[in-house]
Design a protein around this nucleic acid. Sequence first.
RNA 1: GCGCCCGUAGCUCAGCCGGAUAGAGCGGCGGCCUUCUAAGCCGAUGGUCACAGGUUCGAAUCCUGUCGGGCGCGCCA
Length: 578
Amino acid sequence: MRIEPFLDAIAAAAIHDALDVEAPAILRPTSDATHGDYQVNGVLGLAKRLKQNPRELAAKVAERLAAHEAIASAEVAGPGFVNLRLDDAWLGRVLGDALVDRDRDGVPAVETPETIVVDFSSPNIAKQMHVGHLRSTILGDAISRTLRFVGHEVIGDNHLGDWGTQFGLLIVGMREWGSDEALAQDPIVELERVYKLASARAGEDEAFAASARAELAKLQAGDGENHALWQRFVDVSKSSLNLVYDRLGVTFDEWLGESAYNDRLAGVVELLREKGIAREDEGAICVFFGELEGVDPKLAKQKVPFIVQKGDGAFLYSTTDIATVLYRRDRWEADRAIYVVDKRQAGHFAQLFEVMRLLGVEMKLEHVGFGMVLGDDGKPKKTRDASGKVETLASLLDEAEVRAEAKMLEEPLALDPEVARSLRASVGIGAVKYADLMQNRTSDYTFAWDKLIAFTGNAGPYIQYMHARCCSVLRKSEQDRDALTGPITLEHDAERALARQLLKLADAIHAAAEASNPHYIAGHLYELAARVSVFWEHCPILDVAAPLRESRLALADLSRRQLARGLNLLGIDAPDRM
RNA sequence: GCGCCCGUAGCUCAGCCGGAUAGAGCGGCGGCCUUCUAAGCCGAUGGUCACAGGUUCGAAUCCUGUCGGGCGCGCCA
């Protein structure tokens, strides 16, 4: 169950019954546990509205609330807050229900499932992924997993940059310098090498540049030979990209790159002209928002147009993006599409979404932006190291694993080398992901190895470790987990605190899904892990007698499952032993 | 010129659907390992929430302005 909506409804009903008025309850968790578990703040505003004494009104509401089975006490405090304490027996029963719900751990699905396209990662073909692709890939994957878990139909789409001017250069370049062997060996490295050569030559050799443009034109006109070459570039690139995605545990439902929309682009421009949304200017076809009726005034003020066709007749990513929205609507009847893309592109998406609105598209379009990755110097992290070598995402993951393994071998952990090796990928890559996902995505993100591969405090390995400890106790108990059905009794403060945190899982996941904010899940996991740790410290499990032993094992099992569930939604491994 | 984002503890950041003495991690200080994993736990310390006005019973949170930092804006994606 979702505790906050549940209590909010109870509180709103109590206000209605006690005072015979409709008013929002404004239910919030308390900031301080000494005030109870939750508080109702709505009476304050209501008293103002009714011109009555807030404490007197609050007293009437509190009386109603105290009668509810979920609530142990409801007390008026301060100027008119109503502080609620949850009833431990009720809480134990609710957690017992979650315990036997092995599929969903008590997390309800959304009432109205939608079909949602999540557009993320989207690297360019023929180039290695670098640190700039990290956030979109990690965030997009976590968001997809979360939306799917809460019951939506999710289509994860890798909108590859697989079409554009670079292919003319690649085609002539491969003919000039390409090696089939190298292409088979390490495709992206070979394509990058050739591209660099071709690009340099084109800069100083006009004839070469012209032949590249000619090959591109042939490709775009459907030339068979060039198309086959391009297809080969795409295929080998995909297999290289998949090596990285496999390590990250990221999958897609579709890989519909820009090229998938080629044959629709002319139609898009035609449609826009027909509808009077776009017109010709200086040879290009543009949308001028200032000239159209009923446009968002912020956009209308912008002088710069949204260009959908260049003066030379070529289409742009704007055109492709429009075609893509139309396709997603028609192909999947998608209700929503969310774009997990660098927030610097907010302007582009504002324009795109406005064009779609002008076209009468009712699909909900949402730009889920994120901040830049900064280096130690506070400036955007370079994709090359000091020596000018490209720092690829693959090399970054290598380093994460190496550092994680080294740290596990050092004091104070000093793990067995075998164990450290077996954990290096889960811990190293998990740490990198967690460091990113724990932070509000809209903030810029400072990339620092010692922060990323931290094993203490609010870090991925700490969460994984607490999960492994739960597994360990459950193993040692030799308890049949399916026989753990509650009831859960809450006597020790550490048990009560843990139980209250366990109750928040559903709210955390739903809030994360609604706002595309995985850090809400990370926050819940950290709070949970910390409380599990305190529980561990104060509440022996294996050495106590039944039924307390079973109750505590149930808490451990529920904790273990929530930690694993949350880590899974973030795309992070949860090893059983560490 | 137009538009967007940000300024919270020494550092990295939560909080910003308005609510009680502003939180966490890291670093630093002091404790805790014959007991289910010390990757841990407990305690103390640390902040004019950039600044100035305003709205409100109540503002880190909403509004206006100022200062400081960042970003985006015609034929790249």
